[in-house]
Design a protein around this nucleic acid. Structure first.
Lengths: 211, 211
DNA sequence: CGCACCGTGTTGATCTCGTCAACATCCTTG
DNA sequence: CAAGGATGTTGACGAGATCAACACGGTGCG
């Protein structure tokens, strides 16, 4: 396996390209990714990548899809590892979600940036993103059974929660939140607000407090 | 003023460039913007834009800044026009915020996409974005006085709310939310959840319901 | 065993871009 | 009216995305 004599055929170019692309994204953002440079780094010619990806966009879509899978798995394991309490589990997942974005800002941006990935609808992406969402829905369904949240369409709840964590993650990695702010506290505040806002009303629900 | 003889000097190129750039962004996204094409459309040479913007990125930053101003003003007037009730005002603003993004997806994306705007920190952008945020903080401050929301750092509340609406807007324009979903309902659900989650506890606050 | 074929790589060539440099126009001001 | 600055123009570069034609190597068939 020790191909020191640079064999004509790489052996596993596709995987190498994906890995290199991911590395470049982490280093300089998706904008710094170049088919030529990727080839250079992997040690192949500029056109070689085209044997594995129709075009640059396809390569980026593949990288983005990998990101979704990774995020999904990370949330899955963090959810499973959390204590039994649905609340705690929810909190934990929210935290992991934002952490993932902070740990991989450029990759995260790519995952959600339609701009970077041309405007075509890529079924592959939609699919893996949906599997992430479905996981969230499941959490709410379970949480409803525990009585922790209001009984209503869990998908709506999932969308609201997803919006909140994705929004926070996005604002943080785009530098919109002042640096001196305690992000962890903000995450907690966000998940807590969501939970409180979705908590079932004891009985007669006074829509307005008073004013 | 009817310069039919294509005068050597355009007269107001800078403004024309900004307008054209914005139009191109609306049409094909920020990625479709090209210095050469902008010049072409406006009727000047490819290098002319460089007399008004140091580089492409500067032009885009200027367009993004305009977007923030517009969004800020839109929120301002929608807030002012709303009924006196802080709750209603808040709801209205959230709705306007998401609507703005839906009405100008590519522009909105540009505003928040560090990727599209190189990674440099542009003070101009930060400033106008902050003025938007400050406005939100004010709303919470006022709402606290009315007793509509918990008394705590209003900036934290503003961040949480901003995250939620920005996240929702982002997911919608990136196509992450299934098309058949009622976005307006989702907006309402989001603002309501936030309000409920931030409502002051009557008295002894039972952190956990029971389980 | 020898060869046609397919999957992979390679180099050459084309087209679009961003941007800089040198030069042309105008307008304003002294 | 001439100097100077602002605003435009064309020519030239170098980087990139791709496509086309051609080279390598391993495989399966006769």
């Amino acid at each position: 396996m020790t191909e020191q004599t640079s064999p004509y055929h790489h052996g596993n170019l596709r995987a190498a390209l994906l890995a290199e692309a991911e590395a470049m994204i982490a280093e300089g953002g998706a904008g710094s990714v170049t088919m030529r440079e990727i080839g250079r780094r992997v040690g192949v010619s500029r056109a070689a990548p085209y044997r594995h990806f129709a075009d640059k966009n396809s390569l980026l879509v593949a990288v983005a899809a990998i990101g979704f899978e990774r995020l999904r798995d990370r949330l899955r394991s963090s959810g499973a590892a959390a204590s039994r309490s649905g609340v705690e589990r929810f909190r934990r997942m929210g935290q992991e979600y934002v952490r993932f974005a902070i740990d991989n800002p450029a990759h995260y941006r790519l995952m959600y940036g339609k701009e970077a990935l041309a405007r075509i609808d890529r079924p592959e992406l939609r699919e893996v993103a949906n599997s992430l969402f479905d996981q969230l829905v499941e959490v709410f369904r379970a949480h409803q059974r525990e009585g922790g949240v209001k009984r209503q369409d869990p998908r709506t709840q999932a969308y609201v929660a997803w919006s909140a964590v994705h929004g926070l993650a996005s604002l943080v990695i785009e530098g919109q939140i002042l640096t001196h702010v305690d992000v962890d506290a903000l995450i907690k505040q966000t998940t807590q607000t969501l939970l409180d806002g979705m908590r079932p009303r004891p009985r007669g629900s006074p829509k307005r407090p008073k004013a």
